[in-house]
Amino acid sequence: MATFKEFRNNVKPNWCPGCGDFSIQAAIQRAAANVGLEPEQLAVVSGIGCSGRISGYINAYGFHSIHGRALPIAQGLKLANRDLTVIASGGDGDGFAIGMGHTVHAIRRNVNITYIVMDNQIYGLTKGQTSPRSAVGFKTKSTPEGAIESTLSPLEIAMASGATFVAQSFSSDLKQLTSLIEEGIKHEGFSFINVFSPCVTFNKINTYDWFKENIINLNTVENYDSSNRIMAMTKLMESGGMITGLIYQDKTRKSYENQVVGFRPEPLAKQNLQISPTDFEKLVAEFK
C-alpha cells in the first residue's frame, strides 16, 4: 500500500512561502494514502490560478485545465472511469466566479468526485484583485475604494443546490482537513470541501490569525447533527459561514453514476467499443 510520500513528486511548488495551499496539497496526499489508494488510482483535476497548479505537485494522474472548468472535466473523467478516485480542485475565483455555474450543477448532478476549493478570498496569481469571497469594503487593486458587491456564501449555495456532502476546513488544521478529505473520497456522490487557505501576499485581512480567532470548529458545538439539513443551514447562517468540520452529509441519495440507466459497474473506458452485427442490424432497421 502506498504511503503519503509516494504521492509526492519532486516538483517544487511556485506558491509563496507561507501559502495555505501547501497544507492542502499535503492533506490530499495524506488522505489518499490513508484511504489506501495507489498513485495511479488517483486523478487530480484543477483549474487556473495559484491553486490550479496543485495537480502538478501530486504524484498521481493530473489534469491542469482551464479557468473555471475543472469540474466538468473531472466529471467526464469519472464517468469514463469510475474506478478512479477523482479530486477536482481550484480557487475561489475558479469555482465561485468564472466556474460558479459548473459548481452548482456539479453539486446537483452528484457525480462521485471530491471538490476541494482553496479559498483565499482574493485573486492571487493575477496579483491582487477582488474575489466573490472578498468581504464588503475589502480594498484590492480592482476595488481601491473597497468592494461593494456582497460576499458569496458558497456553503449555503451548496446546500440550496442539493449537496450530499458539505464540509469546510482551514489549511492550518491539517488533521481535520485530511480527515474531511478522506470522508469526502469515501462519500458516494459529490463531496464539496471549502478550505480557508490564507494568501499571505495579497490578503492582509483574512490572515491565519484572523481565521483562528473567527472560526468555530463544529466538534465544539454540542449536539450538532450533520445529517440534519435545517440545522446545517441554520448554523451556516448564524455563523456567517465561519464554521469548520462536516457540515452536512446525505448518505441516502445515490450518486449520478449509480442512477444512470444502463451504466455498468466496470469502467466505460475498459469496455469493448465494437458493436455486434446483430445490434447494428437492429439499429439500422429503425430507419427502414
Binding site: R69, P72, G76, L77, A80, G101, L268
Partner: peptide, 21 residues
C-alpha cells in the same frame, strides 16, 4: 449528459476522452 452549458458540454467530453472513452 445534458450539461448546464456549452462549455461544460465540451469540457466534460474532453475529460471523458482523457479518461479513455
Amino acid at each position: 449528459i445534458q450539461t448546464e452549458d456549452e462549455i461544460a458540454a465540451i469540457t466534460m467530453a474532453i475529460g471523458a476522452n482523457y479518461g479513455g472513452v
